[in-house]
Every structure is written in C-alpha cells, then in structure tokens.
Amino acid sequence: GSSGLPPGWQSYLSPQGRRYYVNTTTNETTWERPSSS
C-alpha cells in the first residue's frame, strides 16, 4: 500500500487514539512520522 512511510515502518493507533510509528526491523517506536530520507 501507499502509506508514504519508509520501508520497515508501520503506523498504529494507541489506545488513546494517538498515531505512532513502529520500525518492524529495529522495534523502534516513535510519535514522530519517520522520514524516508
């Protein structure tokens, strides 16, 4: 899909309704949208 996220990243919603991002390669999580640069 065209999520616009860098490879390996997925976006999720927290129980509070906030969006966060997870790097499935490194298990890093961040509130900031990852850049593909």
Rank of each mutant, 00 (worst) to 15 (best):
S2A: 12
S36F: 14
L13K: 06
G1A: 13
N27S: 09
R33D: 09
W31L: 08
W31P: 04
P34F: 01
W9F: 03
G1S: 14
R18K: 14
Y12P: 01
P15N: 07
W9G: 00
S2N: 14
Y21E: 00
S37W: 10
S11T: 11
S2G: 13
N27Q: 11
P15I: 06
R33G: 04
P6A: 05
P34E: 01
G4D: 14
S11Q: 11
T29D: 02
P6K: 03
S11E: 15
S3F: 14
R19Y: 11
Y12D: 05
P6Q: 04
W31Q: 06
V22N: 01
G1R: 11
E28W: 03
N23W: 03
Y21W: 12
N23V: 00
E28I: 05
T24P: 08
T24D: 07
R18D: 13
P6M: 04
S11G: 08
R33Q: 09
S3K: 10
P7C: 06
T25W: 12
P7E: 10
W9H: 00
Y21R: 00
P34D: 01
E32Q: 10
Y20S: 00
T30G: 03
L5S: 03
W31R: 04
G8V: 03
Y12E: 05
S37G: 12
Y21H: 00
V22K: 07
P34G: 01
Y21P: 01
Y21K: 00
G17R: 01
L5C: 05
R33M: 09
S3R: 12
G4R: 10
T29E: 09
P7W: 07
P15E: 10
S11V: 10
Y12N: 06
S11R: 04
G8E: 07
Y21M: 00
Y12G: 09
R18G: 07
L13N: 05
G4A: 13
P15Q: 08
T25G: 07
W9T: 01
Q16T: 15
Q10K: 15
G8K: 03
N23E: 03
E32R: 07
P7N: 08
Y21N: 00
G1Q: 13
P15L: 06
T26R: 02
P34Q: 01
L13V: 12
L13I: 11
T25V: 15
S2E: 15
T26M: 03
W31D: 06
L13E: 07
P15A: 09
G1L: 13
E32M: 07
R33L: 11
W9R: 00
S37V: 14
E32P: 02
P15H: 06
R33C: 15
Y21G: 00
Q10G: 05
T30P: 00
P34C: 05
S3E: 15
N23S: 04
T25R: 09
P34S: 01
W9M: 00
N27V: 02
V22W: 07
T30M: 09
S14D: 15
E28S: 02
T24Y: 08
T25E: 13
W9Q: 00
T30L: 09
L5H: 03
T29P: 04
E32Y: 11
G4F: 09
G8L: 04
Q16K: 09
N27H: 13
E32I: 12
G8A: 04
Y20F: 09
S14V: 03
L13T: 08
P6F: 03
R19E: 13
T24F: 08
S37I: 13
E28K: 05
G1F: 07
W9V: 01
T24E: 10
S37H: 11
R18V: 15
G4V: 09
P7L: 08
R18E: 14
V22R: 06
Y20Q: 02
Q10H: 12
N27Y: 08
E32H: 08
Y20D: 01
S36N: 11
G4M: 10
L13G: 01
S35D: 13
G17S: 02
T25D: 12
S3D: 15
E28Q: 06
R19H: 07
G17D: 02
S11A: 11
T25M: 14
Q10P: 01
T29I: 15
L13M: 09
G4T: 11
S37A: 13
Q10V: 15
L5N: 03
S3V: 14
P7Q: 07
S11K: 04
S2Q: 12
S3N: 14
N23Y: 05
P7F: 08
G8T: 04
G4H: 09
Q10Y: 12
S14L: 03
S14A: 04
T25I: 15
N23L: 02
Y20I: 08
R33I: 11
L5R: 01
Q10C: 15
Q10S: 09
L5Q: 03
E28N: 04
Y12M: 11
R19N: 06
S3H: 14
R18M: 09
R19M: 14
T25H: 12
S2M: 12
W9E: 00
S14H: 04
N23F: 05
R19F: 10
P7S: 08
R19D: 05
L5W: 04
G17Q: 03
G17W: 02
Y12V: 10
N23D: 06
Q10F: 11
Q16N: 15
N27D: 07
R33F: 13
G1I: 12
Q10N: 11
G8I: 03
P15G: 06
S36D: 14
Q10A: 11
T30V: 11
V22I: 11
R33T: 08
W31A: 06
Y21Q: 00
P15R: 07
E32G: 04
T26P: 00
G17V: 00
G1P: 12
W31S: 06
G4N: 10
E28D: 06
T25S: 12
S2L: 11
N27T: 05
S3A: 12
S14Q: 02
N27G: 15
N23P: 00
T24Q: 10
W31M: 07
W31Y: 11
L13R: 05
S36I: 13
R19K: 09
S36V: 12
E28M: 05
G4K: 10
P34K: 01
V22A: 04
G17F: 04
S35Y: 10
W9Y: 02
N23K: 03
Y12R: 12
T30W: 07
E32A: 05
T29Q: 10
E28P: 00
T26Q: 02
T29H: 14
Q16P: 02
E28H: 04
S2V: 14
W31T: 08
S3W: 14
E32V: 11
Q16V: 08
S14Y: 02
W31E: 06
S37Q: 13
W9N: 01
T26K: 03
T30K: 07
S14M: 02
P7K: 07
P7D: 10
E32N: 07
T24M: 11
S14E: 06
S37P: 13
T29K: 13
T30R: 11
T29M: 15
S11M: 15
N23A: 01
T24V: 11
S14W: 01
T30S: 13
T24L: 12
L5F: 03
Y20K: 02
Y12L: 10
Y20R: 03
T25A: 13
Q10W: 07
R33K: 13
N23T: 00
N27P: 03
S35A: 13
T30F: 11
L5I: 05
S35L: 12
S35P: 12
G4I: 09
L13A: 03
G8Q: 05
P6R: 03
W31V: 06
R18Y: 08
R33P: 13
S36H: 14
R19G: 01
S37T: 13
G17A: 02
G1W: 04
N27M: 13
S2Y: 05
S3P: 11
Y21I: 00
L5E: 15
R33H: 14
N23M: 01
S14T: 15
